[in-house]
């Protein structure tokens, strides 16, 4: 399996995402100005401050040439994972419901948080241990998940909330403690926590690996089919 990691000007966690992806498969960079996904089996839109986060987080990046290809890939059922700024970009692009607002505390927060895996039957969480908590860091200023109440109800009803901050761990005031959501088709997933920073026991935890391993499982099955 080969994962592509998008690199925008201002991406910061692209290198980390590449290293994490390389643990479960092959990984390569997708340049923001290209209109080519180079035949990858899955796409990661990484964290950082694409285009300086100027105007509004993710607002400018979503118009990058590569994003047109990512949108097409997603419509065709390809696996797309958005982490932090990548989540913001995917929301702006309309690939995921909702939006990310400034943290309730207004400040940047870098902290290890505990997450509850809500759904384990999806392409991104099928390798995660059911009922167990994941310890994964967050680091952002704009991570408060928001969607209108009706949309939140609908999202929860269809099993679109994959990760929630464990009680007492919501770092930003996210609606219903939502940390990560997927689209209706289940092939696009965005989350504020950084699983790519939880793949090495020395740097804090390996709890993020199961998300990448899930992608390998699913993409691998597609490849085998």
């Amino acid at each position: 399996m080969r994962l592509g990691v998008v690199r925008f000007p201002g991406s910061c966690d692209d290198g980390d995402a590449l290293r994490a992806a390389a643990i479960v498969g092959d990984a390569e960079v997708l340049w923001h100005g290209d209109r080519d996904l180079r035949g990858v089996d899955g796409v990661i839109v990484p964290g950082g401050f694409s285009y300086g986060d100027y105007l509004r987080v993710g607002a400018i990046a979503r118009f990058a040439p590569i994003m047109g290809e990512v949108e097409r890939f997603a419509r065709d059922g390809g696996l797309v994972l958005g982490i932090c700024n990548g989540f913001q970009v995917l929301c702006e692009a309309g690939l995921l419901p909702g939006a990310l607002l400034p943290n309730e505390g207004l400040r940047f927060v870098c902290r290890q948080v505990e997450l509850d895996v809500v759904e384990t039957s999806t392409a991104f969480t099928c390798d995660c241990p059911a009922g167990e908590r994941l310890s994964i860091p967050v680091k952002h200023t704009t991570g408060r998940y928001f969607a209108p109440e009706a949309q939140l109800d609908e999202l929860e009803a269809r099993g679109g909330v994959l990760l929630r901050y464990a009680p007492g761990h919501n770092p930003n005031g996210a609606a219903r403690s939502i940390a990560g959501v997927c689209n209706e088709a289940g092939n696009v997933f965005g989350l504020m926590p950084h699983p790519e920073h939880a793949v090495d026991p020395l740097t804090g935890s390996t709890d993020g690996l199961c998300l990448f391993a899930s992608m390998r499982k699913v993409a691998g099955a597609v490849l085998a089919a």
């Binding site: 925008f8 285009y51 100027y54 040439p65």
Partner: peptide, 12 residues
């Protein structure tokens, strides 16, 4: 320094 006209060139 403002990030310019955005990445797409032809967005509008």
């Amino acid at each position: 320094p403002s990030g310019g006209a955005g990445p797409s060139g032809g967005a509008g």
